[in-house]
Structure formats: C-alpha cells, structure tokens
Design a binder for these strands. Structure first.
Length: 254
DNA sequence: AATGTCAACAACCGCCTCGTA
DNA sequence: CTACGAGGCGGTTGTTGACAT
C-alpha cells in the first residue's frame, strides 16, 4: 500500500518505509499489545520495538485517540454536550483541557464533535441555561474551602467564579468517571498518592468530579485505567484542584 | 445503478514547550 | 546559554460512508 503523501513529501525519502494513512487492524493489535505489555517509555522507539512502520508520533496519536483503554465509543450524551459547551465558552479551543472534564473522550474526538455539531450553533448555551439547576452544596463548599485555604491569584478566583456560575447549570452527578472506583488519588493527610479502590458514590448524591484519563506506567492494577488528574500539586491547574476538591469532599466518610 | 454532496471522524502537519546534554 | 529531541497541542486535511438526486 502506498499513500499519496509518501510520494509527494520529499521528507519521506529518508523514511520511505514509514506508513501513513489509516491503521490496519494488524497494526492496531501490534501497538496495543506492545504498549500494554511494555508501556510507552519513549514513543520514538515504540514502532521499532513493536515492528511497526510508523513514526512515534503516529503511534502515540493512535494509542491516545483510539487504542487506549477507557475510551468511550458511544455518541456524546446531552450532558457531555452541555459540559463541552460550557467549558468551551470559558476555555476556548483548549481541547486537551476540556477533555479532562469528559472522561473517556479524547481531545481529538471533542474537537471533531465541536466542529461537526456544536459549532453550527445547533445547541447553544442559552438553550441550556433554561434548564439550570440549583448549585450543589458540595461544589459551593469545595470552592469556598479552596478559596479560603489557598493563596490563589485574583485572576484564578475570577476564573473560579466564572466556572462556578457555569457549573451551576450542570445537572447533578453528570461528570462521573467510569473508572472512579479505581482512581489514583492523592491522600490529603499524608500528601502521598495512593490507589483508592472500591469507592462507590451513589448517583443520587450528585456531585461533579473530574477524572481525565491518564495511562500510568507501572500500573499496579493493570485491568483498569487510573488517572493522574487527582494529584494535588502546585502545578496542577486550578480547575483540577477545584474539581478534585469537590470530589474528595464527596468521597470522605460521612 | 451511478454519481454527487455532505457529515463524521481519523490522521497528519506544524508549532510550541520542556527536559537534557 | 544553546541546541536538540520528544511529547503534546490545535489546526487542517484526507478518507469514508450515508444519503440525495
């Protein structure tokens, strides 16, 4: 199989064996089994080790957007659409950041969905605002706690207020990770990360959490996809901390 | 049945950031 | 400080399939 771009791109001369275009099932299987078995320490070496005639970037993209465990293959739900609209109004085209709020969705998928559906204005925020529900106490408490106990910049607080206003339009329990019961959380008391298993939050309690997918190397529990977005670190984004705070407050024993 | 059009989505490209030597 | 490579991100293009004519 020879792709058009392989002929026209002079840069490809030195890498004539590299394939482009759609991935075959065989290639998918090679990449999947290799990454699941050995992880992906260095993407540039993956194609060599896995016996693929692709470049590292292509492998990474294929894994992240298609092969990675935990990805949703279903259509976007109304709730996801609402979240996407709200976040896009705040963050703009920051697809990777938006994807963190939509577990199982990739930035590429979100970007495509935006361009093919929402950009047309079929659904607008205004429409959704008519269905706003009262803000959940947990979210309010989390935000207040966060604001009072941390030294946030003024701009961050403003962003928080905006986000707080926007998030009140969400229905309860709409952002819930499929794999939350196996999520990697940072223990606030010890400041050490630990796997939290078997956490079950009844849907009727309703909360908004964050669980962006992140495949960890040396995963101690290989049958699920943990997340690194719960880490409380200085460089963690405000949104992360805000939502993590909400999440952990909800998960604390009553 | 053949062809054209369009939407959805997969994948590529170029640029940027960050870590490292 | 600089150069370089790897990874990540967002914009864009290419491919495919469904539907209309």
């Amino acid at each position: 199989m020879v792709f058009k771009s392989e002929k026209s791109n002079p840069k490809m001369k030195s890498k004539e064996k590299q394939r482009k275009g759609l991935w075959s099932p065989e290639e998918d299987e090679k990449l999947r089994s290799h990454v699941l078995k050995y992880g992906h320490g260095c993407w540039s070496t993956i194609p060599i080790q896995a016996g693929l005639q692709r470049n590292g970037k292509s492998c990474r993209l294929r894994w992240v957007n298609y092969l990675r465990p935990g990805l949703k293959k279903s259509l976007f739900t109304k709730e996801e659409e609402t979240i996407l609209l709200s976040l896009h109004s705040m963050l703009g085209n920051k697809w990777s950041q938006i994807s963190k709020f939509l577990p199982g969705r990739t930035d590429n998928e979100i970007k495509n969905y935006w361009h093919s559906n929402l950009k047309k204005g079929v659904v607008t925020l205004t429409q959704h605002e008519t269905t706003r529900t009262p803000q959940t106490p947990s979210i309010t408490n989390s935000l207040e706690a966060l604001q009072s106990t941390t030294e946030r910049s003024a701009s961050s607080i403003n962003v928080a207020e905006t986000f707080n206003a926007q998030i009140s339009s969400f229905s309860p329990s709409l952002v819930f990770s499929d794999w939350l019961d196996h999520s990697l959380l940072m223990d606030q008391s010890t400041q050490k990360s630990s796997f939290v298993q078997n956490l079950v939050v009844p849907e009727e309690r309703g909360f908004i959490g964050l669980c962006g997918p992140c495949y960890l190397e040396n995963n101690p529990l290989p049958d699920f996809v943990p997340t690194s977005d719960f880490l409380f670190e200085d460089d963690t984004s405000f949104y992360d901390n805000f939502l993590i705070g909400s999440l952990i407050n909800e998960l604390r024993p009553m």
